[in-house]
Design a binder for these strands. Structure first.
Lengths: 231, 231
DNA sequence: ACTTAAATGTCGCTG
DNA sequence: CAGCGACGTTTAAGT
């Protein structure tokens, strides 16, 4: 990993064109040929970048470029798409390299998968007498998060999201259409369960006869206090 | 901007929990209190991070932590959500600071908006005798990219994407349902136009009587050669 | 401020 | 390898 702080301008040519005017910035050159151009602000997304696999090459500026104050031209080209990032280096303020090796990687816990596990354990949150039938029930158009039986024994398809938006309702609608064509399990009703349901999504869901259930993650996790944590 | 290369372990507690075991990494501390934890690989996304606005504080390790080899504890807390990132610093390999100032920012050209402008100018790409009627036609559920008239004078709703996927077809379907309820413009047919259309999206679209058109961006831009560039 | 759609998305899994 | 959905999505645009 090489880290350079330099006055530079940057041009990207690929799926779109983009330009960064001359300013001091941080350039991170990774071992896989990728490069990140960061400023002192914004969030984690760089101002501009080239993702791996890429090849880096440095070259001398031509006369015009040298006259414009450019001391070095870096070209980073994507190995597959041919997209290229061109850094026109004016003045290097700092240039350091470090051997980092391969990172052991991140351990995560607590996303939609966890919500699904919790709801499967606490399926009665959908209503008295509800029973879990299947998790990740595979269909040709994708897995249905949960299939349950209501107190009358009818099938209920549950789509779980952290944030319930219109896409999720569309997804559940497609599952319901498909499941209701299967005489072994039809009729199937739908439940759209999320930590938070956007008004548009709620309107669309209810318009299609899909029940909306807001899940309280902290409360569900509290009840699940006996359950082992990942770390 | 402070850039530190250090052996460290990292813990994040917020919407999820995550842990990074001890390894050498690059830590970028930005002026707005945010921090990025990068390794020598992956793409532009850091292994872990805290987005602004955040507050940074460094503290001494307690006896147990010191015995474990920790020399410094950094706590970065989000000002609004309270999410926190804790960096346990073992050994600092490099520590530099630079004053970068506010970045002038990125200038972009060539995304979906540009495709829409080009198609509006070259509406005959949809068929002989086609005429542009409206762009960004507002409806209660969002703007229809383009409304055109075909050679017979019938209304055509066009949804434009860079990459045509299933949700784009769903979106156009919703518009068509709505538009076809309006007797002033019904009947309305649909065209799904994109640089690239995924097979599943094409199948769904054609199943619903929506025509798929693949747009050649480079060719369209070539024809538009007289048009002024952004830079 | 809030909501919605796009992204050079990136990442991870499953077929 | 392609396809598909999730993401601590982030980000930009519009109301």
């Amino acid at each position: 990993m090489r880290i350079v702080v330099a006055h530079c301008s940057v041009d990207y040519a690929g799926r779109l064109s983009a330009h960064l005017p001359l300013a001091p910035r941080v350039l991170m050159l990774k071992a896989d040929g990728s490069i990140l151009v960061h400023s002192d602000g914004g969030s984690y997304k760089p101002l501009n970048w080239m993702s791996p696999p890429a090849v880096f090459s440095a070259s001398e500026p031509d006369q015009d470029q040298a006259d414009a104050g450019i001391t070095e031209i870096w070209t980073v080209t994507h190995k597959k798409t041919g997209d290229s990032l061109i850094v026109s280096v004016h003045e290097i303020l700092s240039d350091t390299s470090h051997e980092l090796g391969v990172d052991p990687g991140l351990v995560k816990d607590g996303v939609e998968a966890h919500l699904q596990v919790l709801l499967a354990e606490q399926i009665e949150r959908l209503g008295d007498g509800y029973e879990l039938w299947r998790r990740e029930y595979m269909t040709p158009i994708g897995p249905v998060d949960i299939l349950a039986r209501d107190e009358a024994g009818a099938t209920v398809a549950v789509e779980i999201k952290r944030r319930g938006e219109i896409d999720g309702v569309e997804q559940l609608t497609r599952y319901l259409e498909l499941l209701n064509r299967d005489p072994r399990i039809a009729p199937v009703t739908g439940v759209f369960a999320a930590q938070e349901i956007k008004p548009q999504a709620r309107t669309l869901a209810e318009d299609r006869g899909i029940r909306c259930v807001v899940l309280d993650y902290d409360e569900m996790r509290g009840i699940d206090s006996g359950h082992a944590r990942l770390f």
